[in-house]
Design a protein around this nucleic acid. Structure first.
Length: 152
DNA sequence: GCCAACGTTGGC
DNA sequence: GCCAACGTTGGC
């Protein structure tokens, strides 16, 4: 099975590509959306590539690339009432939320801004560019990934 | 900071 | 199981 491509959103004020670059490898915790959870738990595999996207910042952009190094496992922050994302309905026997570990690959010299991406042929159907799309873990097709990598 | 679009919760 | 109310996301 060929490696797949994904896009992970993050608010750089909270966690940015520079934080990931500093750490090298890190867990991607805090995802609290079922559709995104299902991707993390079931579909994202070691070796898959991940585009990192900065939201709610100027400029909003895809800023770099990472690689999955550990497949879905329970996001332990859900069990910790002191964490930023506790879930009282989750238990260790019955976890609700999952995360993966990713490793920093590269930071793009020029970020691929949202406004620029809207003009790029071949990306019209990207989940990121759909109106009202709030999904924080998104699949990216091989074709879209090829276009994105050629733009960087 | 606003607010439209979206997702989740909970009363019935 | 419907759906109104509520909470959150994220582009602008």
């Amino acid at each position: 099975m060929a490696n797949k491509f994904w896009l992970f959103k993050t608010e750089p004020n909270v966690y940015s590509i520079d934080d990931l670059a500093k750490l090298g490898t890190d867990h991607w915790d805090g995802v609290r959306n079922y559709q995104a959870r299902n991707f993390l738990r079931d579909e994202i595999k070691v070796g898959d590539k991940v585009f990192i996207y900065h939201s709610r910042v100027d400029p909003m952009a895809i800023v770099g690339l990472a690689e999955v190094v550990r497949e879905g496992y329970p996001d332990y922050t859900q069990f910790n009432p002191e964490s930023d994302h506790p879930d009282p309905k989750a238990s260790r026997d019955n976890p609700r939320w999952y995360m993966v570990d990713i490793q920093f690959v590269e930071k793009f010299k020029t970020p691929l801004t949202l406004t620029a991406l809207r003009e790029v042929p071949g990306l019209e159907n990207m989940v990121l560019l759909q109106k009202g799309s709030r999904l924080s873990i998104q699949p990216v097709t091989a074709e879209e990934a090829g276009v994105l990598l050629s733009l960087r």
